[in-house]
């Protein structure tokens, strides 16, 4: 069980590769026969997908055979990373995207709130004074970005 937990990223990677490989293998079967040249639209997808599936099988086989090697250590870099923190960051970003694109809230407000929250999340503000300075700076920065997005790039969220 511990082995599986330690290999959780390897296993997710393999499962993901297998799923995509099989998915493409199946849908490549539905592609039309080649008309312009002998390879056709399906040759590359089925070829590469087969290689993917083959490599996954080979890799799984190796994990079982060479169990010992993989069990050996957990390096320090690994223990320094937190999955939760990373995905919280992504979540904050997704909320930002939803606010901008789906709820049509002003870009600068979203950008300001996002950056404030993300910065506070990464590093807790240590004094009120610093926090206030940060806010002022971020509001200014967000307004500049808002100008770029609406009046130069003409984004239409």
């Amino acid at each position: 069980m511990i082995t599986i937990f330690r290999l959780r990223y390897e296993i997710s990677f393999l499962v993901l590769s297998l799923t995509i490989g099989v998915l493409i293998l199946i849908s490549a079967r539905g592609l039309p026969e080649p008309t312009y040249e002998p390879m056709g639209a399906a040759a590359f997808p089925s070829g590469i997908a087969s290689i993917t599936v083959f490599l996954v099988v080979l890799k799984v086989f190796r994990i079982f055979v060479e169990k010992k090697n993989l069990l050996s250590f957990e390096d320090d870099e690994e223990s320094q990373l937190s999955l939760l923190k990373s995905f919280c960051m992504l979540l904050i970003f997704i909320v930002f995207v939803a606010l901008v694109c789906l709820f049509n809230i002003s870009f600068w407000i979203c950008a300001f709130l996002f950056m404030l929250l993300a910065m506070a999340f990464l590093k807790r503000p240590n004094s009120f004074r610093n926090f206030a300075v940060q806010c002022v700076f971020l509001i200014f920065f967000s307004l500049v970005l808002d100008y770029v997005v609406t009046d130069i790039l003409y984004f239409n969220f």
Partner: peptide, 11 residues
């Protein structure tokens, strides 16, 4: 395997 996956996403 990473390369195969990258190639699949390009198709």
């Amino acid at each position: 395997l990473a390369a195969a996956l990258g190639a699949l996403f390009a198709l």
